[in-house]
Amino acid sequence: MNAARDILRQLLRDPAAAVGLLIILLLVFIAIFAPLLATHPEAIWDMNPRQRLLPPSDTYVFGTDRMGADIYSRILFGARITMVIASVAVGVALLIGVPIGLISGWTQNWLGEALMRVSDIFLAVPQIVLAIAISQTLGPSIENVILALSVTYWPWFTRLVHAEVRSLKNETFIEAAIALGVPTWRIILLHVLPNVASPIIVRTSIGMGFTILTASALGFLGLGAPPPAPEWGRMIAESREFLPEAWWYALAPGLAIFLVVMGFNLLGDGLRDVLDPRIRRAGARR
């Protein structure tokens, strides 16, 4: 627990990371308290033809959409969808990817090799292509988006853990443990896992941002949560019909996606600096 407090203290010293953390906490807060924070919670699901496509005003801070719903309130409820999709998808990807990476990195036999080839296959095409294929065949729903995203994201964790474990295996303390006859599961649980935790945490944060981007792209393409769910990507897609007159329509959802992804990226960068100074602060984010 002390270590966690230490990390937090170091994180907060980096303004960018602190901003990232703040954004994420805000998102969580909004997701939980959306019904209380929303100014027009009732207008999320209903049609209000008379309030259609109103520009931003005191009553409707971000304007209203084609159904006459308050975009601000929809954004708040959309935060729930975003949070659920991203955290469950990345969580499942972790649960699949980390054990596979541990096994393939540790065993280094045909099984490990085969597992790595399988993850190579998934990495050979852009994630969004497979995700589109899966969510299309399954039909649009939140569960299917989550499934599509986790099934396509786990190889990134596998890759990472595999590489870390392989280099760890040559460390003296691991070799010593093996020589002493410590059971493999103990070594992996007590010595390997804690040592690969840092890169996994960093990758998780960055993966959250990336997954939110992909999920919203699916929503934009009409493959995400079905209407009238206030999914941010879908809101942007809906706005296209009403441009350029309803200029505000896409503004808020786009900014929301941007802010949240930025939050996770900034936090990921900060975590990387604190947890894993070996890794350079750079990178394509996936």
Partner: peptide, 12 residues
């Protein structure tokens, strides 16, 4: 920002 912005939104 370049890594956080949704490309379809930027396009729009």
């Amino acid at each position: 920002a370049g890594l956080a912005v949704a490309s379809f939104w930027l396009a729009l």
